[in-house]
C-alpha cells in the first residue's frame, strides 16, 4: 500500500505537486492519470525517495522508502527505460542491481527470460529499441520480486505490439496479487488496465476512486444507433423522454443503456444495424475534468501582429 499525505514539491517558484493525498490499495492496479506536466513523475520520484518532498509525506506499507531494507525486494519501479548505460550489457546492468540487493546471480537470467530478453542479454543496452529497453526496465523492476510496482508511462512511444505486451504483463502482475501503480496521460489506456484511479492536474488531486465510478460520474454515456427505421426509433425514444441527437445516418442516445435501446427496438420489430456504446467520450470527460489544470495551453487566438 502506498500512502501520500499532503505531498508537496516546489522547484523554485514552480509548484509541481501541491498537497497531494491519495492511497494506492494493495493487490490492485491503480492508474495514475493526469495531463503531461501534472506532476506524475515528480510524485513517483518522491515515492521512491529520489526527490525530497518540500512538505508532506509518502510511505510504502507504513515506511519511508529510505528506511526500507533492500528496497528492490519491496518496491520495483520503471520510471524511464533509457536509464541504462548504453555501453553496458543488459545482463551486466541487472547483475549490479542484483548484487546491490543481495540477490543470487541466477535471478538475473530468470527475469531476462521472463521479459523475453534472454537471447540479447549480452548485447549493449544502447542498441536496444524502445520496446526492448522497456522490457529491460521491467526486468529490473521485477528483479527483487517486489509486492509493489511503479510504472511511469510504460506504453509511451511503443508500437502496438509493445503496448499489448505491456498491458498483458500488467494484468499478469495484478493477477499475481501485486500492487501496481501505473501512470499515464491516456485515459483509454487506463480504462483497460486499471481498477482504481488517482487523477491529478497541476499537482492537485482531482479524483480518487474506482475506474467505473469515474466513468459513470464523469462521462455522459451515449449510444450510437443505426437503423433503416431511424426516425421511428427516435420518435419512440423521445416519447419515453430520452434525449436523442440526430447525426446523419445515425442517432446518438444519451444516458440509456444499449440493452434498453435494443429491447425497445425489438418490442417494436425495428431492425438495428448498429448499437454501439460510445467510449470516446471518456477522453472528453477527462479533458473536461483536467482542462483547467493543464500546464501548457495552446493559444487559440491568432497572434496580433
Amino acid at each position: 500500500m502506498i500512502e501520500a499525505t499532503g505531498l508537496t514539491k516546489h522547484y523554485g517558484r514552480t509548484v509541481a505537486v501541491d498537497h497531494l493525498s491519495f492511497t494506492v490499495e494493495a493487490g490492485r492496479v491503480t492508474g495514475f492519470l493526469g495531463p503531461n506536466g501534472a506532476g506524475k513523475s515528480t510524485t513517483m520520484r518522491m515515492v521512491l525517495g529520489l526527490d525530497r518532498p518540500t512538505s508532506g509525506d509518502v510511505r510504502i506499507d507504513g515506511k519511508h522508502y529510505r528506511d526500507l531494507k533492500l528496497p528492490l525486494t519491496t518496491v520495483g519501479a520503471l520510471l524511464d527505460a533509457k536509464w541504462v548505460h548504453p555501453n553496458r550489457s543488459a545482463r551486466a546492468h541487472l547483475r549490479w542491481l542484483a548484487k546491490a540487493t543481495k540477490l543470487p546471480r541466477k535471478r538475473v537470467d530468470e527475469v531476462l527470460d521472463l521479459v523475453g530478453l534472454g537471447s540479447v542479454a549480452n548485447k549493449n543496452a544502447g542498441g536496444f529499441s524502445l520496446g526492448m529497453s522497456q522490457r529491460l526496465g521491467i526486468a529490473a523492476a521485477l528483479l527483487g520480486d517486489p509486492k509493489v510496482l511503479l510504472f511511469d508511462e510504460p506504453v509511451n512511444g511503443l508500437d502496438p505490439e509493445g503496448i499489448l505486451w505491456i498491458r498483458r504483463f500488467m494484468h499478469r502482475l495484478a493477477a499475481e496479487g501485486r500492487t501496481v501503480f501505473v501512470s499515464s496521460h491516456l485515459l483509454s489506456e487506463m480504462a483497460q488496465t486499471a481498477q482504481d484511479l488517482v487523477v491529478i492536474g497541476r499537482g492537485k488531486l482531482i479524483y480518487q476512486g474506482t475506474v467505473s465510478d469515474f466513468v459513470e460520474n464523469a462521462t455522459e454515456n451515449t449510444v450510437l444507433v443505426r437503423s433503416p427505421e431511424l426516425t421511428r426509433l427516435a420518435d419512440l425514444l423521445r416519447a419515453d423522454g430520452v434525449q436523442v441527437v440526430e447525426d446523419g445516418d445515425s442517432i446518438r442516445v444519451a444516458n440509456l443503456a444499449s440493452s434498453a435501446i435494443g429491447e425497445l427496438a425489438a418490442a417494436h420489430r425495428i431492425v438495428l444495424h448498429e448499437l454501439n456504446p460510445q467510449l470516446g467520450s471518456l477522453e472528453e470527460a477527462f479533458i473536461q475534468l483536467t482542462g483547467e489544470s493543464v500546464e501548457y495551453h495552446a493559444h487559440d487566438k491568432e497572434p496580433t501582429a
Binding site: 529520489l50 528496497p71 540487493t101
Partner: peptide, 18 residues
C-alpha cells in the same frame, strides 16, 4: 558523471537509498 548522464544514479539510489 556517466551515472548522472545516463540516469543510472537513480537506479543506484533506488537499490541503495543510503
Amino acid at each position: 558523471t556517466t551515472e548522472y548522464r545516463f540516469g543510472t544514479i537513480r537506479s543506484t539510489f533506488q537499490a541503495t537509498p543510503n
